[in-house]
């Protein structure tokens, strides 16, 4: 059982390119449909919790599922399975890259690659912004405007070189205060699993 468990996570780790929706689908198929480690409801709830946890969501989900299946050992095995091969590949690739990073061909290729990476970063931001703004807009004009203002304000403060830690904490506290005290209640929204 431990070996099979480890192998399943190895497969997920090595197949998860680009993160996000594709990896989640992969994990769902393995954990719920094939291995039946947890039910559909449990998976949905675990994913909601993972999104609220700090750091990489996929790792939090991995930890929760590992915990469900075999406690502390499950956590260890699933993390090792997911992270060991992927980290090894990343480090080896980076190490080999570090040797050639100043060669003329690589420098030339980077002139193309780096702007494209920035483009991909912008696309990722857009994908993250959209649901947040949609959700707050659905709660009313005030909430939508508040979210937009918060986004723009944080960008401005960061542009003015305020320390990012304080921007993040300040925005989080402001967000909590607004949702809790300012915005009139309209029933619960957000990622409560259904």
């Amino acid at each position: 059982m431990p070996l099979k468990f480890l192998r399943a996570w190895l497969l997920v780790g090595c197949q998860s390119f680009g993160g996000g929706v594709a990896t989640l689908a992969l994990l769902h198929r393995m954990a719920v449909e094939q291995e039946e480690w947890l039910s559909e409801e449990e998976f949905t709830r675990d994913w909601a919790l993972s999104q609220a946890a700090p750091g990489i969501n996929l790792l939090a989900l991995t930890i929760l599922i590992g915990h469900r299946v075999a406690g502390a050992n499950g956590i260890l095995l699933s993390l090792v399975g997911l992270l060991l091969p992927t980290t090894a590949i990343t480090v080896v690739l980076t190490a080999s890259y570090a040797h050639i990073r100043h060669s003329p061909v690589v420098e030339a290729a980077l002139k193309g690659i780096l702007p494209a990476t920035v483009g991909l970063g912008l696309l990722t931001s857009w994908q993250m912004i959209r649901p947040l703004l949609k959700e707050s807009h659905a709660e009313g004009r005030g909430s939508g405007a508040f979210s937009l203002l918060l986004l723009a304000g944080c960008a401005l403060l960061s542009f003015l070189r305020f320390p990012v830690v304080y921007i993040l904490l300040f925005a989080a506290v402001l967000g909590a205060f607004y949702r809790w005290k300012v915005q009139p209640r309209k029933g619960t929204t957000g990622e409560s699993p259904s």
């Binding site: 999104q51 304000g153 944080c154 960008a155 921007i167």
Partner: peptide, 15 residues
């Protein structure tokens, strides 16, 4: 809690 998470996410994207 919802508001905290959303505020943090917006700040992460802005920065």
């Amino acid at each position: 809690v919802d508001g905290f998470m959303r505020g943090l996410s917006l700040a992460v994207i802005g920065t």
